[in-house]
Design a protein around this nucleic acid. Structure first.
Lengths: 201, 201, 201, 201
DNA sequence: GCATAAACGAGACGGTACGTCGTGTCTTATA
DNA sequence: TATAAGACACGACGTACCGTCTCGTTTATGC
């Protein structure tokens, strides 16, 4: 890469079509967003939808998984702004962001895929963590750490455990709630306040 | 069943073989435990492994999901005893139970299946919640409620949120930890203490 | 076969569908008769035309060639009656039969296939010889031999060479004539008479 | 072409490479000689074998058949000398030539291709007739005609039928003999004598 | 000598057919 | 009536070539 301007090697033959690549990824994302599971995704269908020969897909990705990984990578995960005045405010905003994401069809599907296929498609899961989970985690960690540093939170707070409790609680409600009722609107506040305050009298 | 000895109506023809049924379910469980995802589970393979015709499977279950549901039902989820002297002790024991389950290959696979396929196989998820999640949830709820009633915990504790925080934190570590290092042995204590104490000074 | 009534082995499972088999062979024959060469014959197309899964074809024949062999076998080649009063009359009738066969679309196609694909599909050629060529050859040999025996032909006639000359001459006109003009109607007589009479003065 | 010496327009750009052309034809011939049927001949393989791009082939020939036609044209068919003293001698020499050709691997393959693919590749067949069949046919016709003119043969001999009988008989033995035994060495004599003498007493 | 322009190798492109596998249904003989 | 065995129509798999289409490079001339 560094030496490219010095006459770096150029592969001979016709270069791969970026248009085709985009069409393939778009088709895959659309189908996933429409509810097709990764396992149900057929290369044949993606090719047909993208108006592309199957070979053009196999030339780029040897697995369905690799394709989906690349597809996921194109999805920019919008991040909530967490520059609030207090830890409580930021945490609530963060949790509210999580809660809201379950409403957007596209985000929800992608997230579900990422979460639910992780066991079977480890590459996929890892990549998802990298592009979607990690930035959020880092943002939340910064919020908590800032609280510890400023004295807003206790000095002996275990940052990782605190993050796990906050995030885990919301995920728990989102994914394993017992009925399909809408989540209460004040859930972020309730989670934040309770974890901040603790359970002890 | 109960009235059978009274000469009640008996369906004519050859009765279904319990042996076959057991063989099918065993085969399915084994394959899942060996890492085969529900989607990858092929009826053909189950039949071959169980030494059974495919018809014999389809006669009993109309689809793969129903089969897996029944297979799951045969797995008795051992519950930790939560009759400890304090809320803290019980919570730690509960979390430790969760953590340990991730070590047993079989339990882990089953749990992963149940968790990860929930989106695509809703019946399966529901059934799993019923036989595996609910009893635990109830047990934990009882522990927390007991704490509230006894004054060991604050009176205004939101029991559901507390449960979500405790369970969610552990799941978070179990499923979304950043590296594959062994979980620290004192994780249950750390989670319990932090959530009990809260984050505020 | 002979001992079948004594309790011969019966393969378990659903027996192969004769209807499907017939549909496949019919489809193949039709496509060949319509001018599709053996090499151009696609299993996919045969299956579609026969309303049959590809597997059903592959289950029966491992090669396209084997399929065509069996297809050919179902074609009964009608034989001319050769019970005439003289060798000359029988020979002319025989040659006229050959000439006529080139007019019937179906017969012609089959024959062409058989002849033209023989190099690449040896099984096919062998089978064709067996069911189509040999009976005719035998019939002609009988005619010539009868002539020798009866004194109608010379005693020192080389029967095989005589047959080759007669049949070969007609094939030569049929397949390698220089233009596509219709063959003259009196060709059988001309060939027969000339070969019977010889070239010497 | 005609005006070239007048300084006519010369096509600009790089001229076609004769080397490439030769390499392509050689590759094609080799593959045919090795037993590959025309239908099995893949342009891809020819290009690879010739070390040439596929475009270079398609630029010269619009289809496989045209390529093979040109390939065949490069094969000079050696003709037997037929300047013998008698018709009998020349005919025997001619037939012996046919018989021998079936021994040379290369000749045999080419001939087989030409014969067997004629139905499906009409251009090919026509060209083959032109470069390989017609000269021989003409030579044989001259021999027979010479016999008729000189009185060595009967005046009323049908030259075309005589040629068909002679050539056809040999082809018949060559291509449709019942077993794979070696052809008898005296076959040319036997055919010639029998056809010259006729079958009648 | 240097621009022009076609031919060149390489290889990607949209397709079609390949032969295999798994689906869920069906059809046998046997229990 | 249930069973095992296995055939059935269907549809997706991943591969091989098809004939076409870019690429960057090479190789002849004509200015």
């Amino acid at each position: 890469m560094v030496t490219e301007h010095l006459g770096a090697a150029r592969t001979p033959g016709r270069p791969r079509s970026e248009k085709a690549e985009k069409a393939i990824i778009d088709a895959a994302i659309d189908m996933i967003a429409e509810g097709t599971g990764v396992a149900e995704l057929s290369i044949e269908a993606i090719a047909a939808r993208a108006g592309v020969g199957k070979t053009t897909i196999y030339r780029r990705w040897s697995n369905k998984e690799d394709l989906v990984v690349d597809a996921l990578a194109t999805l920019k995960a919008p991040m909530p702004e967490l520059e609030g005045k207090s830890v409580r405010e930021d945490v609530i905003r963060y949790l509210a962001g999580m809660q809201q994401e379950t409403h957007h069809r596209r985000t929800r599907c992608i997230m579900n895929i990422a979460l639910s296929e992780s066991e079977r498609f480890p590459h996929l899961a890892e990549r998802f963590r990298e592009i979607a989970v990690k930035p959020r985690r880092d943002a939340l960690r910064a919020v908590v750490q800032r609280g510890v540093d400023s004295g807003e939170l206790r000095a002996d707070v275990d940052v990782e455990v605190a993050m796990a409790a906050l995030t885990g609680a919301m995920i728990f409600f989102t994914k394993w709630r017992e009925n399909d009722d809408e989540l209460p609107a004040d859930l972020p506040e309730r989670i934040a306040d309770q974890i901040l305050a603790g359970l002890l009298p």
